[in-house]
């Protein structure tokens, strides 16, 4: 297919291939979750697969491949890893707060009220808002 691949010794090629498959498989699984999970707050967990281990293993694969190909340590992929580690939590928490704010302003019953107000609603610490999976709900209706 392409020429540089041939210049790499077998073990490095094998490890790179496995890491690449693992990384892209995880990224794909994450996006599948984005498509398949039913509620927004559940979907927020899905892309984390790609942003942690998914891009991590592809970066390790790239580091290994270029280090072997160019016969010198190529480490600048660490920068993307650091960037991902620092930025993903920020974007996700910001987005979660924005979604919570929007849902609360529409009085969505599935979303807990603001933490300060929870006491006023005589809610004890540790009490939880739990939503059963949609299928279970359907099952419960059928049972009735």
């Amino acid at each position: 297919m392409s020429i540089p691949v041939l210049n790499v010794p077998g073990w490095a090629a094998g490890v790179t291939a496995v890491l690449l498959l693992l990384g892209s498989g995880l990224a794909f699984t994450g996006c599948l979750g984005l498509l398949r999970l039913s509620r927004f707050y559940d979907r927020m967990h899905a892309p984390t697969l790609g942003t942690t281990l998914g891009i991590g293993s592809v970066l390790i694969a790239s580091m290994l491949f270029f280090s072997v190909l160019q016969a010198r340590p190529v480490l600048h992929e660490i920068l993307i890893a650091i960037l991902m580690v620092v930025t993903t939590p920020i974007t996700l928490t910001l987005l979660a707060r924005a979604a919570l704010y929007r849902d609360r302003s529409e009085d969505d019953p599935d979303v807990p009220p603001m933490i300060g107000k929870q006491r006023m609603h005589s809610l004890q610490e540790g009490e939880v808002f739990v939503q059963e999976e949609e299928q279970d709900r359907g099952q419960a209706l059928l049972d009735e």
């Binding site: 297919m1 392409s2 691949v5 077998g10 291939a17 794909f28 994450g30 996006c31």
Partner: peptide
């Protein structure tokens, strides 16, 4: 042998990533 495995797995992972991007789109 390993080089073919690598070029195939690069192709497979690119297809997987394209599918992932389709899901996200």
């Amino acid at each position: 042998m390993m080089a073919t495995f690598l070029s195939w797995s690069i192709m497979i992972s690119q297809i997987l990533l394209a599918l992932a991007m389709a899901c996200a789109s």
